[in-house]
């Protein structure tokens, strides 16, 4: 490891700083207080998360990033209530979380649409669970399907849809249950680059139109900077909070901003935090059979 300091975060312009100020002034929807998680394994206990604390304000878009094995997925499963924490607590609107519930919607990385239900029945599922009748649930579901741009596909089955369309339905299904927080665990991880970019701008559009707070897990740093107001960086083994950083990129976001200094500066800092520069090995010393002479030209 070198002692080279991480590149400083670019300073936000006035409008962005004011927006972030307003965000910090809003009430806290989600509060995580010194959360810890230890798994029991055959090789003894494995500490996945240690003393993780952060909070998310209403209408905030928070991304959680970190190297693989830093406990991102464990953290989001704890937030969803799908796993029990070993220590600490999670509060949604000040009420402690105890198991999964409608107040925290979840979009998974894999496709978790119900294959036996049509698109509209999938989206209506959460509505019916809240006691709504089938007819009312269906007509409200259609509005959510419109919102994610899938009008005309209401009566198709999931296997007839492309990967991006499936994740749109999954987003609509979660939002229809009116959660306070939408948890997204690498939702676009399985998509190709082009669809992924489309889905990112689409998600921002939805977020703009719906009163929803988003906690988004990703390992794609560009995605994190592009989407979020604030980024939580986790250190691996055990997962700990390395840093909170507020993204100084103005909104509304567009792909042209990727080349801006605010974007690139944030990106560089994130990259440094997650992949600290390693000491350079003396590559020449490594004994290696020479397989090729043609390949000599490539460098």
């Amino acid at each position: 490891m070198t002692d080279r300091p991480a590149p400083a975060l670019p300073v936000a312009d006035e409008a962005t700083a004011a927006r972030l100020d307003r965000m910090r002034g809003r009430e806290k929807v989600l509060e995580v207080k010194s959360l810890g998680k230890t798994f029991e394994s055959s090789q003894g206990p494995v500490e996945a998360l240690r003393d993780v604390s952060f909070s998310v304000h209403r209408r905030e878009f928070l991304c959680i990033v970190g190297a693989s094995g830093c406990g991102k997925s464990t953290l989001v499963r704890l937030l969803a209530g799908l796993e029990e924490s070993t220590s600490g607590e999670i509060l949604v609107d000040g009420r402690p979380v105890d198991g999964p519930g409608r107040d925290r919607g979840m979009v998974f990385q894999g496709y978790t649409l119900f294959p036996w239900l049509t698109v509209v029945r999938n989206v209506a599922f959460g509505l019916e669970m809240s006691g709504m009748g089938r007819g009312a649930a269906d007509s409200e579901a259609r509005e959510w399907i419109d919102l994610v741009g899938l009008r005309g596909f209401e009566d198709n089955y999931p296997h007839q849809l492309s990967g991006g369309m499936k994740q749109r339905v999954a987003i609509a299904r979660s939002l229809a249950a009116r959660p306070r927080v939408l948890l997204m665990d690498e939702p676009f991880g399985a998509l190709d680059a082009q669809t992924r970019a489309q889905m990112q701008s689409h998600l921002l559009q939805i977020w703009k139109n719906v009163d929803i707070t988003i906690v988004f897990i990703t390992h794609d740093l560009d995605e994190a900077v592009y989407l979020s107001d604030r980024i939580l960086v986790l250190d691996p083994r055990p997962g700990r909070v390395r840093e909170h950083l507020e993204v100084p990129v103005p909104r509304p976001r567009s792909f042209e901003q990727i080349v801006s200094s605010a974007f690139q500066g944030t990106r560089a800092r994130l990259d440094h935090l997650i992949h600290p520069p390693q000491p350079v090995h003396d590559i020449e010393r490594i004994p290696m059979v020479r397989f090729t002479v043609v390949g000599d030209e490539v460098e």
Partner: peptide
């Protein structure tokens, strides 16, 4: 698929509905 049941849980499905409206149709 366990994630189908988890998805139903995050949508607020009580255990009875997890069984009758997810587990049963998923395997029928």
């Amino acid at each position: 698929e366990p994630s189908l049941i988890e998805a139903a849980q995050t949508l607020g499905a009580p255990p009875r509905h997890q069984l009758l409206r997810v587990v049963v149709p998923a395997s029928i």
